[in-house]
């Protein structure tokens, strides 16, 4: 089956499409923006996950936002008490800072690298704390799907070896935030420790 686009919305505004296409070039010429842009920018098409945002209605999605929108993709895990909630909080604060109009065009897709422990209910509960119901709770279809996304975007993760059924193990992960535009390009990546102001400046620059 064909993956659905993230955040199905029927209205496609031509103006938004044009704005979106102009994004990448504006980015590369803006050295003051936080984070880095790769050259060439990787494309995220073909990377699919299951979005568990709506209980009992999981939906296969890709990582491409609707026209005129940005997607902040983060690979993390729920048993992470410091790095992951800090990043989610920083992005949530940035969405507050830019105001509702821009926030509505900026969504977070949280991909768990620890599907053994991070089920749909817990993912929803965790993300709704930061983003109300405005997020994507992504669980990889299988290990290969996660590996494919990690390869494409440069994500690294490592689950400590553990006995089956043992719920106590460490997870290492690269904690970057990947910013994807409406053409499905990874236009920017921000390192762990980027501030709410960094995220807010990026949103304003990318969504004029």
């Amino acid at each position: 089956m064909n993956p659905k686009r993230l955040a199905q919305r029927p209205a496609v505004l031509l103006a938004a499409v044009i704005l979106g296409v102009g994004l990448a070039s504006a980015l590369l010429s803006e050295p003051e923006l936080p984070g880095v842009a790769r050259d060439p920018m990787p494309a995220v098409d073909g990377l699919t996950f299951v979005d568990h945002r709506t209980a009992d209605a999981p939906q296969e999605v890709d990582l491409i936002p609707d026209p005129g929108e940005l997607l902040f993709v983060y690979f993390g895990y729920l048993s992470c008490p410091d790095v992951c909630p800090m990043t989610m909080s920083d992005i949530a604060q940035a969405r507050d800072a830019v105001g509702p109009a821009l926030a509505a065009r900026t969504r977070v897709a949280f991909v768990t690298v620890d599907p053994q422990r991070d089920g749909p209910d817990r993912l929803r509960s965790y993300l709704s704390h930061f983003f109300d119901d405005d997020y994507h709770a992504l669980i990889p279809v299988d290990e290969a799907a996660l590996a494919a996304a990690a390869d494409r975007l440069g994500v690294r993760y490592e689950i400590e070896a553990h006995e089956p059924g043992d719920e106590r193990y460490d997870v290492l992960h690269s904690a970057l935030t990947y910013v994807v535009d409406d053409r499905g390009h990874l236009v920017r990546e921000l390192p762990f420790g980027a501030t709410p102001d960094d995220y807010a400046r990026l949103i304003r620059a990318l969504l004029p």
Partner: peptide, 8 residues
């Protein structure tokens, strides 16, 4: 050029 991993 791979990013570092974070741990605890």
């Amino acid at each position: 050029d791979a990013p570092a991993m974070m741990g605890m």
